[in-house]
Amino acid sequence: MLAAALAAAPALGQGLEEPLTAVPGDPVAGAAIVGEPTRGLCLLCHAGPFPDVPFQGTLAPPLDGVGARLSVPELRLRIVDSRQVNSASIMPPYHSLVGLTRVGERWQGDTILSAQEVEDVVAFLATLTDPPIPEETE
């Protein structure tokens, strides 16, 4: 369904205008997903404004300020399937099953995040309009 939607969007590169669900995203729920490393997995690769998470990833751009850099449709597309923006992206496709191989039995047929969770995460990211607090890299 989603694959069809993505395929139908002409040269979409930049964004997914349509929310995935009728219920607007909840930024508080989104913060809980992003800020809990084992749930959203975001902090495995990204750093973000979560002072309580002692170790954060260094493999991707920090999430701070991302809400100022990107629009909501742009954010949504990157969470749904970042390969639509950069085919070589290492960021997992959070709401697409396209092209996956050898998915473990207990995860088969499931996307990493549900449609509502994607909307929550997007709503949270949109609130991140402050630039990163300067901090040590590496």
């Binding site: 495995l44 493999l59 997992p92 092209g99 996956l100 995860w107 996307t111």
Partner: peptide, 22 residues
């Protein structure tokens, strides 16, 4: 491979030395 769609090479060639969480 897998739901996260990463290859051994992604981590161990391209990202080696980086920090995956801790």
């Amino acid at each position: 491979m897998g739901q996260l769609n990463l290859a051994c090479a992604t981590c161990h060639d391209d990202l080696a030395g980086g920090r995956l969480l801790a």
